[in-house]
Design a protein around this nucleic acid. Structure first.
Lengths: 141, 141
DNA sequence: GCCCAGATGCGAGCAGCTCGCAAGTAACCC
DNA sequence: GGGTTACTTGCGAGCTGCTCGCATCTGGGC
């Protein structure tokens, strides 16, 4: 069994444990998000509808919201355009180049020092994960 | 003459020097942006229309784009919701609390070290100004 | 004043969601 | 397996925040 499938199973099991119902659509959406990080809701709709064409876009939006409230997935804004969805325990932050659009993954732990400094200096705990940091990659500078 | 009015004058003069035409609407929009940082386009429309009700919202959007291309103003995304507009030489970055919505201004220079570290370590020059950093303020933690 | 490239008012259109409602169904109980 | 019911879904309308095409108008060089 692939690790992604395992992730999806965990999502579904946790949903059920929280008293939520498990439906075909929710299974399919969990599987797609666990397998493909950083898809937009519309892209998730595309993947899901290949196997389950009856699943409506609004169901995808609502399910993503449910999964997010359950603490299982989260959305991140990579610059302009639609939000992107990933597992809540995804260990990376994103740096988005405004020149070429390239997305650089950086382990979250690499920002612990930075966060600590800002927190000590300004009393503010930055959650780097929700809005990606934008700027210029090495190639575009 | 107020310093904000002086800022607006500089915007208008620079526009003209770049071969752009100066119109009543553009004057009014420059004045509002120079006087009130972090307004949304819709809010700018409101301010402008108090004195010049004939100025159309689409003119405000187009003028802001023109001023941004001229390097005179910039927009920043403070979390969800509309973009906010400020002078390009505004010396502060914004930290937005996801708990209470409070916006904390921090001098840009305070991020020079952080930017240098990330650049040295990952080769990526972060432009903190375009998407505000979100997180939790001291009160909400 | 005259002229015309550039700016504007206006309305239609678009992306990315969000919501209300009636119909469908998962999960609990027997 | 079947009944019950509250939760979930498909569907479509609606909303925010812009963006664009087009006909009209006007700033600024002459």
């Amino acid at each position: 069994m692939s690790p992604e499938h395992h992730d999806a199973e965990v999502l579904i099991r946790t949903l059920r444990e929280q008293g939520q119902r498990v439906t075909t659509g929710r299974r399919a959406i969990a599987e797609v998000v666990a397998t493909n990080p950083d898809l937009s809701a519309e892209e998730i709709v595309g993947f899901v509808q290949r196997d389950h064409p009856e699943v409506h876009p609004s169901t995808v939006y609502r399910t993503l919201e449910t999964l997010e409230e359950a603490g299982l997935v989260r959305h991140v804004h990579l610059g302009h355009g639609p939000a992107r969805w990933q597992l809540a325990d995804d260990p990376s932050h994103r740096l988005v180049c405004e020149g070429c659009g390239a997305v650089q993954l950086v382990p979250r732990v690499r920002f612990d020092d930075v966060r600590g400094q800002v927190e000590a200096e300004f009393g503010f705990a930055i959650a780097f994960g929700h809005f990606a940091m934008t700027g210029r990659c090495a190639a575009c500078r």
